[in-house]
């Protein structure tokens, strides 16, 4: 915990944005390990892949484009300090009546949660309680979550996408090839590694019932493999391998798959996302439902992360290219 504070303070002080981005990655990693010590393995997994992985990657990409030094102008720190101080004081005030950390008898542990712990095995039949709650009891929130990430994907597309001219494309990819020729060893190693990463993604995808993991983490890992490929072999090559329109449509398919499970259960006479009616045996129905929606989540997340990354990287290529031309 003390480490976290150090990192956070460092972020305030450091002016080199590149370092700030790295520090925020470290911050994500530290909080992920903190989550493990607090028994939240699923959350730790996700935070590690998002906080230390994707977010940092995006920040680095942005910093690469916008320049790494910050012009340090201090302005209105008094007002900011005041706001922060009042908010902080209110929060500290709030903690005074809180149940203590780790208290078994805290109201939060007594009311709704016990049912999940005691009955989820009988009602859903999945070892990982987090998965049962995520994918069944509170499946609608998770649906919302997929929609949020999809919205972000579309938002990034709306902001950053542009119709590229073929000649730009050719020039850029030729640049890239010459640039990437050099790292022969890295490329060979990663060529061997990438299939394994993809395999691991599939494992995480379908293993969520028993251990930590699930659609979201799997999607991120899958996307990471593709991004690794793109970074090593150049954007041009990766873009030829992966059709953008196809990726967009697949992201939509992921969201729709999730929704269709819900619609199917409505057609079978249940409520939206009621998996019990999907099969003769309610528990089997739950299994089937969770499997499909997790797949939907996985597909949507993987595709959206790829969309986001490619659009960021494309922008960099273009801006670099323009800069080159000017020189």
């Amino acid at each position: 915990m003390t480490f976290l504070i150090c990192v956070a303070v460092a972020i305030v002080r450091v002016k080199d944005l590149f370092a700030v981005a790295m520090l925020s990655g470290i911050y994500g990693l530290l909080s992920a390990s903190l989550f493990i010590t607090m028994d939240a393995v699923d959350v730790a997994f996700t935070e590690a892949s998002v906080g230390a992985g994707i977010s940092t990657l995006l920040m680095l990409t942005t910093v690469a484009m916008t320049g790494r030094t910050e012009h340090y102008v201090r302005h209105k720190p008094l007002l900011a300090l005041l706001v922060v101080f009042v908010t902080g004081a209110l929060l500290i005030y709030a903690t005074l009546d809180m149940p203590y950390f780790g208290d078994v008898l805290a109201p939060a542990n007594l009311h709704v949660a016990p049912r999940y712990i005691q009955d989820s095995m009988r009602e859903i039949g999945v070892d990982n309680i987090v998965t049962s709650v995520l994918a069944s009891y509170r499946a609608f929130d998770t649906f919302g979550e997929v929609v949020v990430i999809f919205t972000a994907g579309i938002g990034v597309l709306a902001l950053l996408s542009f119709t590229r001219r073929p000649e730009d494309d050719a020039e850029i990819s030729s640049d890239n090839i010459s640039m990437h020729e050099q790292n022969m060893i890295v490329r060979i190693v990663s060529k061997i590694l990438i299939p394994f990463i993809l395999l691991f993604a599939l494992y995480v995808q379908f293993h969520g019932d028993f251990g930590p993991g699930g659609g979201f983490q799997a999607g991120v890992i899958f996307a990471a493999a593709i991004i690794l490929y793109a970074m090593l072999f150049g954007m041009g090559v990766a873009r030829r391998a992966i059709n953008q329109t196809f990726v967009q449509l697949f992201a939509a398919v992921g969201v729709l798959l999730y929704g269709m499970v819900g619609v199917a259960s409505m057609l079978n006479g249940g409520n939206f996302l009621d998996y019990n009616v999907l099969s003769e045996d309610p528990v089997a129905g739950q299994h089937l439902g969770i499997l499909i929606i997790e797949l939907g989540v996985g597909i949507a997340v993987a595709m959206v992360v790829i969309i986001i990354f490619f659009n960021f990287a494309d922008r960099i290529d273009i801006s670099k290219h323009k800069a080159d031309k000017k020189i």
Binding site: A40, D42, V43, T46, E47, V50, G51, A108, N109, V112, A113, Y116, I117, I129, V130, V133, L134, R138, D141, T142, G144, E145, V148, I149, F216, V301
Partner: peptide, 13 residues
């Protein structure tokens, strides 16, 4: 308690 874990998974996304 698994419930906050679920909420935070959503919030991280």
């Amino acid at each position: 308690n698994p419930l906050p874990h679920v909420l935070i998974l959503t919030a991280i996304v």
